[in-house]
């Protein structure tokens, strides 16, 4: 190999090396760097406020609503679902680690035995299945929607701590990442088009939230009344770009949630928040 060839190969290697070692933490750092530019003066801790992050009026309106949330009766119905014993006498609290308190921030998790991503909602359904109860539909607001509105609130304040370790976990994370960056639908948007490249921009009347912080504050009650789990919100955004949405609870969305939740690592979880 002559010298210039060698130099070229070395140069290529040096250029590719950072790509080769790019992983979840590098992704998060890259998102943070982009948001530092797009959202100057906004503290990372405030990203959880989503589209309210840069609007003082909207934030104080939000705080007022959160003092007496109109959806409190819905969360209480969720608590009833949580407390009602299964026919075998067991409860979710019996079934879950730490009685289901301060655990939601560890989900989604990669399960190496099943080689798939397990979301917090799947964990609840696993408890139901183990007790011989029918599973709830992941798109069902009246059951899974309200149950998680309460069950996740038992982890309020817990920092998100998603782990991606080992090649199996990384493959699922990468699958979620690919979906996040893939342009889809007639409008040809990717999640990244809006929630990375145009975060902080205004679409008609709404500020677009940054992807970091989103997964930490779910479910939300839109208009103060309609519960949206994270997957229901994914569906809404996909419909908006006129793409065929994946079903709530699908593997594609579980992987997306895994990637998406990792981005929020370190931010405190809060369940059942108001959104416009």
């Amino acid at each position: 190999m002559n010298r210039s060839r060698l130099a070229a190969v070395l140069a290529t290697f040096c250029l590719l090396a950072p790509l080769a070692q790019a992983g979840p933490e590098e992704d998060r750092a890259a998102f943070l760097a982009t948001f530092a530019r797009k959202l100057p003066g906004v503290a990372v801790d405030d990203y959880v406020y989503g589209s309210l992050l840069d609007n003082a009026d909207a934030r104080s309106h939000y705080e007022d609503i959160m003092a007496f949330p109109p959806f409190l009766p819905d969360v209480e119905r969720g608590r009833d679902l949580w407390e009602k014993p299964f026919r075998n006498g067991g409860t979710y609290a019996d079934c879950l680690p730490d009685s289901g308190r301060m655990i939601a921030g560890k989900y989604p998790q990669y399960d190496p035995v099943e080689d798939r991503v397990i979301t917090f909602e799947m964990l609840l359904n696993r408890c139901r299945a183990a007790a011989g109860e029918p599973e709830y539909g992941y798109g069902d607001r009246a059951t899974m929607g309200l149950l998680t509105a309460y069950a996740r609130s038992l982890s309020d304040g817990m920092p998100m701590q998603i782990r991606v370790e080992g090649p199996g976990a990384l493959a699922k994370y990468e699958a979620g990442r690919r979906l996040f960056f893939r342009r889809i639908g007639q409008m040809n948007f990717a999640c990244a088009t809006c929630h990375l490249h145009n975060a902080g921009g205004v679409m008609r009347m709404e500020t677009i939230s940054p992807a970091i912080g989103q997964a930490a504050h779910f479910p939300v009650f839109r208009g103060g009344e309609t519960v949206y789990t994270l997957h229901m919100r994914y569906i809404r955004c996909m419909e908006q770009v006129r793409a065929q949405p994946f079903p709530a609870g699908s593997e594609a969305f579980n992987d997306l949630e895994y990637f998406h939740s990792y981005l929020s690592n370190g931010l405190p979880l809060q369940a059942s928040v108001y959104r416009r």
Binding site: N198, G201, V202, M203, R204, M205
Partner: peptide, 9 residues
Amino acid sequence: PGAVTAATL
């Protein structure tokens, strides 16, 4: 005047 929006994109 009827085009009501705050868009910035």
